[in-house]
Structures are given as C-alpha cells and as structure tokens.
Amino acid sequence: MNELEIKDLNAYYGDFLAVSQVNMDIPDKSITAFIGPSGCGKSTLLRTLNRMHEAVPGGRITGEVALEGQDLYGSGVDPVGVRRKVGMVFQKANPFPSMSIYENVIAGVRLRNKRISRKDADELVERSLRQANLWDEVHDRLQTPGGALSGGQQQRLCIARAVAVEPKVILLDEPCSALDPVSTLAIEQLLLELKERYTVVIVTHNMQQAARVSDQTAFFHADAEAWAELTRLEATLGDKSLPQGTRPPGRLVEYAPTDELFNNPRNKATADYLSGRFG
C-alpha cells in the first residue's frame, strides 16, 4: 500500500521553482531514500511532505501530496495537524536546550497543550527512548539537559521526540551528516527497526547509506540541459504556464527499488552520479 502519493508537485521559493513536476508513490512501512547532488531539491521535496516548506518565507507548492489517500494540501487542512502525522528529524540535532531529556521526549505532547498523567508520561518517555535505542544509555539521567548528550545521542533523542507523538511517517533530513561513523551506524540500525512501525523517508548525501538502509531510492538532479529541452518542448506544445527559474529546478530523474537503481540504473545521469562522475 502507498502511504504517500505525490502528484505533479512543484515547489517554489517566491518565484523561484526549486522542484519541478515530481510524481512518486512512497509505500508504507519501508525506507525511501532521496539522493542527488546539492541543490537538487531533495530536502525541499522532503519538507513539502509535512508542510514545513511553508515555514520558509515565500515557500509554496502546486500539485498534490496525499497521505493515506487524503490530500495534505486540501482546503481546510491545517498544516499543524499534518505535522502531527508526519514527523521530522533535522540535519543538525536540535534538542530543546531549556528542557531535560525527559521533557524533550514529551515535548510534542506538552507543546500541544495536551494533559498527560505522570504515569502515562513516564511510559511514553520509556517507550519512545527504547524505540530510539537510547533508553539504556540515558535512563538513569533523564532529568539532565538534552544538550549534554553526544551528537549521536542527541540525534537519537530527536528521533525519540519525533516518535513520541506517534506519527505515521518520519522524515529525516540528512540525519547523519554531522555524526561519526559509529553514531551513524547506530542511527542506521535504528532506521531499520523504525520501518517496522513507520514509513521512513530519508534524505542523504551518502550513497552508501542509501544503499545500506533503503528499500527504494529516488535520484534527483537539477539538470540544466534537460530543463532547457523540456521547456522548449512545452513551448511548442503551446503551454506557456511552465514557470521559468534563474536556476534549473530539481527533478526526479529515477525512482526504483534500491538494488535495481544501484546495480542497473536506467538513466545516464543516475549512472554518472552513482559512479562519482559528478555531484
């Protein structure tokens, strides 16, 4: 079953088209990796999946993103509600500095002004920290500040914070780019456990990481030549509505099961990127 369905998605920053015409289906209880060179729009696309893209001034989209068949951008849909179903972990671990480890985990509940009994809160904290493989390391110091943990632990704390609100989907934006190899391995193992319960989408610069953890991989690329070709084609077809950017927008070049994409890429750009010829 498809958890997320992206249809004809264009993402803009003001007038600048950052991502153009993405169509893809993301199956549930699996890991989907977005790879591609810098500036190819993979992070932007990720942020459209929980409407965080709108938090950037000028951020807007056209097209459709459906979660379990329901359009996240439909009229009357509250972006705040979307983010409760689609959680996010950022590139730089960002635990709340004024809160303890315990408070960080239940921050999602507290920030929604929901009441929770002490017993339920204790259970939620333990369950979430266990899901993030962090419980054994921190259970005896839950009241210490989250910022005192190591980088890798902080990132797992952020994952615990995200799973504590029980989302359907977890988005991760280059979660390991600031971590050492050991911490990276810990997060990768964690991701494999998380996909039992959640649909996971991860943006990564690290192709090996995508190959190691993901079930399917999407390769994005902002290719100037291909874009020029495409706009010429649209112009001859008489459609003048295709927006022009100063830079070519990122496009989904190839999307396939990870083994297939890495071993037998259909597109030349994909093959070039995977073999390190650019990016």
Partner: peptide
Amino acid sequence: LREAGWALGAEKHTVIWKV
C-alpha cells in the same frame, strides 16, 4: 529550535511561549 517545535505539530504561539 522553532522548526523542531513546528515539526512536532505545535502551534506557532506555543513554540514561542514554550521553546
């Protein structure tokens, strides 16, 4: 930190007040 708050499904004013 603001983005972390929003991504948890918190309203903007709650993020300002509590984060």
